[in-house]
Design a binder for these strands. Structure first.
Lengths: 196, 196
DNA sequence: CATTAGTGACTGAATATTCAGTCAGGTCCG
DNA sequence: CGGACCTGACTGAATATTCAGTCACTAATG
């Protein structure tokens, strides 16, 4: 019982449910994200989903946190210490399949936030976190002389929008927009470094 | 008879259905976009929706075209002749309510494209159109000396990603990301004009 | 003109289907 | 035993879809 983040096999099962939800979302889209579809991706039964989560909404809310945490892990892998490294990590030149699927899932959850306050709250936090991270990196870069003086807020926002936009376009388009966008972002940063 | 885009009340009705769908989507979100909700926004009966469209999916596919066309109209209103004007039109400093609702609807439809091929096809076309528009504007600007020599493709992609990202963040967040993003984009273009 | 037949737009009520959520009970392990 | 974990069959409500029939209007006919 109890709501603490305790140990044992229970957590394994919940993790498996999150992964199943991820696969179901990636392959079917939010429109067809039914409990049944999640169960189909899950080794155990549909009823078990209700043993671990009160309602579908409950499950999905937790899934959103899980997905956002998962996203943060991409950053932790590479150690990011400059603005440029941040951009590189978020707009990779070559996108592996795992991350492609991830982006598809992420974008679909995010769009829900346009009409669901609970989701919106989460993505607002998410957005602020990344924005502040970026502001911190830019300030460090300026101090260290790696970037010339800039309007930090404006640069952070434009970079974050570019990153999110690249993800959205990548996930909803047949064209490979990542490399060119990355190229453009690199050039932008280069020009702010004083290079011509 | 015949399938041409002729006159009469039929087209009026279909237009009314599109508007009703728009309102239903804006207010309820894709998750709750039911035929009933559309019918509630529609002056005529629910059955009539099936008189004019085979299925809900059919209706929604046509709605997507309608929505994309509607979006293009925002550009035609203001006459856009430079890259900067394009960016201004797409990332307005003050967002009126009508366009806010529009963005919410648009983003939600777009996210569907991550898992639905028919939607994806439409947004791929949409993306290409805007990208090419942007490439054309940038080339003109360079020729006219309004912009220094740049990698046209990279700049077009980074601008389009910024625009789409600003829209996504605006629609899914409680913070007002438009003004700062716009500020950053303006500065970027200013620096490409040679100004410091 | 009056009547008949025909048609497209439209409706309300009925049907078909999907889906979240329940429940009675099973298994395994201390 | 008793509790944690798990299942398959089931249900009710929501939802998409169908359908028999109405209504306003037009064209043709005598």
């Amino acid at each position: 019982m109890s709501a603490d983040t305790s140990n044992d096999g229970c957590e394994d099962t919940r993790e498996a449910i999150m992964k199943a939800t991820y696969r179901a979302l990636r392959d079917n889209g939010t429109a067809d994200l039914t409990i049944q579809n999640i169960a189909d991706e899950f080794e155990k039964s549909k009823s078990l989903l209700y043993y671990h989560y009160e309602t579908k909404d409950d499950l999905l809310i937790e899934f959103l946190s899980w997905l956002i945490d998962r996203n943060a892990e991409f950053l932790e892998g590479d150690d990011v210490e400059t603005t440029e490294e941040f951009v590189s990590a978020m707009i990779p030149r070559d996108v592996d399949d795992e991350r492609a699927g991830f982006r598809a899932a992420f974008v679909q959850m995010r769009a829900e936030a346009a009409s669901d306050p609970a989701y919106r709250e989460q993505f607002t936090q998410y957005d602020r976190l990344y924005r502040e991270t970026l502001v911190g990196l830019i300030e460090q870069d300026v101090e260290a002389g790696r970037l010339r003086e800039v309007d930090t807020d404006a640069l952070a926002d434009v970079l974050l929008s570019t990153i999110d936009g690249a993800m959205l376009r990548y996930a909803t388009t047949d064209d490979d927009v990542m490399p060119t966008t990355r190229e453009g972002a690199d050039r932008l940063l280069a020009s702010l470094r004083g290079e011509e």
